[in-house]
């Protein structure tokens, strides 16, 4: 039953968590080739790790990881003692988690990131999401969240991933008054996308 199919750009030709349709994208003027425009170097800077190296995403491209990173920063903004999404490694965690899910999820996430990065034309702005300042990003997200079904489901799907993977991280617990599990040990799943696994895979 669980045949893996070759990855395709068919995310918008059938419904996924995006309620996507080719016509909806065409209406945004994006066509169907989901290739992110924009300066590759600028995207790379968004995901560069503190030690200066670049992460190696498992399912997403560096550009997609960069958009996801920028998006997570606004979905769960740092402040009031809450670490930033980048510090928590949320984008990398989501990318790694996708490797353990059906391919459709990766397609949906890619489609959502594309729409968020390049969907500004529907709201009168040609600017890419990543190129906006924080208030600009918030305004873009608010417009999409309040927009049509396609845009809303993009933001809704990404919102859940970003929030869940933020608040499972122990570093956020002191901020929300959660004292954590009662058993005193960790038992990660065999297929692990956690920060521990990211650290391990980084060597």
């Amino acid at each position: 039953m669980q045949q893996r199919t070759p990855r395709s750009l068919a995310a918008f030709s059938r419904r996924g968590f995006l309620i996507g349709s080719a016509s909806a994208l065409a209406a945004l003027g994006a066509g169907v080739a989901l290739v992110m425009r924009g300066d590759p170097a600028a995207y790379r800077e968004l995901v560069r790790l503190p030690d200066g190296t670049l992460p190696t995403p498992v399912r997403l491209s560096i550009k997609e990881l960069a958009v996801l990173s920028a998006l997570c920063d606004r979905l769960v903004p740092a402040g009031n003692g809450l670490p930033s999404a980048k510090e928590l490694g949320i984008a990398r965690r989501v990318d790694r988690e996708l490797a353990f899910l059906r391919d459709k999820m990766s397609d949906d996430v890619r489609g959502a990131l594309f729409l968020i990065e390049h969907g500004g034309v529907a709201h009168g702005s040609a600017s890419r999401f990543c190129a906006l300042d924080d208030p600009g990003k918030d305004a873009r997200l608010a417009a999409m969240w309040g927009g049509g079904a396609l845009e809303r489901s993009c933001v809704a799907g990404m919102r859940i991933l970003a929030l869940f993977f933020t608040y499972v991280d122990d570093r956020t617990w002191p901020r929300i008054g959660y004292s954590g599990p009662l058993v005193g040990h960790r038992s990660t799943p065999a297929a692990d996308s956690s920060v521990l696994a990211l650290t391990r895979s980084a060597g």
């Binding site: 903004p77 933001v155 929030l163 869940f164 608040y167 499972v168």
Partner: peptide
């Protein structure tokens, strides 16, 4: 808490303020 975060409305600063009241 993390499932609560996913079920609370919205995102961003408004959501963060709610999580502080979890």
């Amino acid at each position: 808490p993390a499932s609560l975060a996913a079920c609370l409305p919205g995102y961003g600063e408004g959501h963060r303020a709610l999580m502080e009241l979890a």
